[in-house]
Amino acid sequence: MESAFRRGAREGLRDFLPLSVGLVPWGIVTGIAMRSIGLTELESLGMNLLVYAGTAQLGTLPLIAAGAPLWLIMLTALALNLRFVIFSASIAPMFAGRSLSERLASSYLLVDGVYAICADKALKSDDVPWRWGYFIAPSIFNWMMWQLFVAFGVFGADFVPRDWSLEFMVTIALMVMVLPMLRTRPMLVAALAGGLGAVLLRGLPLRLGVVAGIVVGIGAGFIAERWQQRGRAA
């Protein structure tokens, strides 16, 4: 008979597969983008292995290219990764009974898509080995696919002519990520305020305008949400 762990792994992979299609253009673009700002092959693959967070990687490339201070790069990466604190808080009960090393590996591996399928299904399950399989199998699959397609981009970047303004792919990629988030009005307010805030505050020293814009955006989104609720209550 098939073990609960293997059944979980199989079902997790099956549910994750449709979400993983986006990995292909995504990984390739990230690979090309890292090379386009001037990272070597080794540096690009190293960044991809260490950071393993597409949004944070793409988002910090302009700062790395501009020679921004390290703390600012770290702060921007932190802002782009902050959503994972929420995911982590909501998914944590799934890891009851797992060892510290398994938890550490899971912390490195947790990505948006796997969180989405687990929040949907595995969080409600009391079957410990099943839900571990359901989390870890698609997580490892995602990691392998990501490393593979980023490597395609990293080594394929040399075949694209230098004067094609490829660094604009970073901006397109960031836009494609933010657009689906803007379904509610407060999200739209947060994005507009964050973007315009960063433009207006661009004169701040040390490229702090980006971080200041992020803070403005978070505040504006939060206030917009409050107003929306008050409007409904009245």
């Binding site: 302009p62 782009l80 960031l174 999200m187 805030g197 992020i214 978070i218």
Partner: peptide, 13 residues
């Protein structure tokens, strides 16, 4: 709101 604000703060400028 952090991810939307952060992505937009990078894109719009």
């Amino acid at each position: 709101y952090a991810p939307a604000a952060a992505l937009s703060a990078l894109v719009v400028p």
